[in-house]
Amino acid sequence: MELFNSIIVILDATLRNATPLIFAALAGMFSERSGIVNIALEGKILISAFFGASAAYYFGSPWMGLLAGVLSSVVFAQLHAFATVTHNGDHVVSGLAINILAAGLTAAVGNYWFSQGGNTPNLAFGDTQARFTPITLPFADQLADVPIIGGIYSELISGHYLLVYLAFAAVPLCWYILFRTRFGLRVRAVGENPHAVDTAGISVAKTRYLALLMTGILVGFAGVYLSVAVTAQFSPNMSAGKGYMALAALIFGKWRPRTAMQACLLFGLLEAIAIRSQGAVFLGVEVPVQLVEATPYILTVVLLGGFIGRSVAPKVIGEPYVKERS
C-alpha cells in the first residue's frame, strides 16, 4: 500500500509536470510543421506567464490572466512570424531574440510595476482568489477512501487545475486540426513543399502566420498554467527550460500530437522522480538526481542519432521561402 501510494503521488506529479510541456509541444508542433523552427517556446512561455499573472492580479481574475497571457504570447508569436516569414529572418536567431527579449522584458517591466525584484505579487491574497484552483471531480470525495479506486480516481485523476484537463483534451483536438482540417492540411503541406503550396494558389505567408497564431495561443496556456495556476505568482525565468524540453518532446514524439504527449508524460515522470527522490536507488545503484534531470535531453539526442527509431523533421524546416527564378 505504501508503494501504491507513492506511485500515485509520483503519477499525480507527472500529470502536473507534463501539462505545460504538452501545451508548449503542441504549440511548437504547429510552427514546426509549417516549416518554422521554434526554439522560441521558452520565451513565449515566459511572456505569457508574466502577463497572465500581472493581469490576473490587476483584475483579480484568473480568467483575465488567461486572456492576457494568451494575447501576449500571440503577439510574440506574430513578431516571430514577422521576422521569419515577412523578412526571411533566420529562424534560430529570431527564436533566440524572442527568448532573450522575453527574459529581459518580463523582469525589467515586472520590477517597474511591482517593485518586487521582478516577481508579481502573490495571486492568492486574503480572500481574493486571482489564481486557478484545483477542481474536484464529482464523487471524488465520496470515493476517496475506497482502496485502489480512491487512489486512482480521487488522488490521481481528480483534483487538478482545469488547465491540466484542457491540456489532455487539446491533444486529440490538435490532432484533428492538423490531420482532418483544411488548415491542418495546408500547414503540413507548407512545411514539406512551400513551392507546391504556392502553385496551388495558397499563400505560404498567410498559412505560416496562422500556424504561428496557433502556436501563440497554445503556448500561452503553458505560461499561464505556470504562473496563474501552479505557483500563483510570476518570478523571473520561471519557465526554467520548459520551452526547450517541450521542443525535445516534440522531436522525440516525431512531430505528432499523441506521441509528443507521451514524450511529455515521460519527461514529466522523470521530473517527478527527480524532485521526489534526491538520489534514487535503481537496481541497487544510486542514480544521481542530475542524471534523471538530464535524461530527457539524453534520450532526445539518442533518438536524433537514429539509435532508437527515426525522427524525420518537416522537410523545409528552417528554410525561408523565397520565390526563385527557375
Binding site: 482532418r180 482540417t181 483544411r182 488548415f183 491542418g184 492540411l185 495546408r186 503540413r188 503541406a189 514539406e192 513543399n193 513551392h195 507546391a196 503550396v197 502553385t199 496551388a200 494558389g201 495558397i202 522537410k315 527557375s326
Partner: peptide, 28 residues
C-alpha cells in the same frame, strides 16, 4: 500547369495532393 519539377507534397497521398488548395469547407 504541370511543372517540370513536380509540385507535389511527397508525404501526402494522391488524394491529399489533389484537394490541397481546392478544399470545400473546413473539414477535409
Amino acid at each position: 500547369m504541370v511543372h517540370q519539377h513536380f509540385m507535389l507534397i511527397q508525404n501526402f497521398t494522391a488524394l491529399e495532393n489533389v484537394i490541397l488548395g481546392a478544399e470545400d469547407g473546413i473539414a477535409i
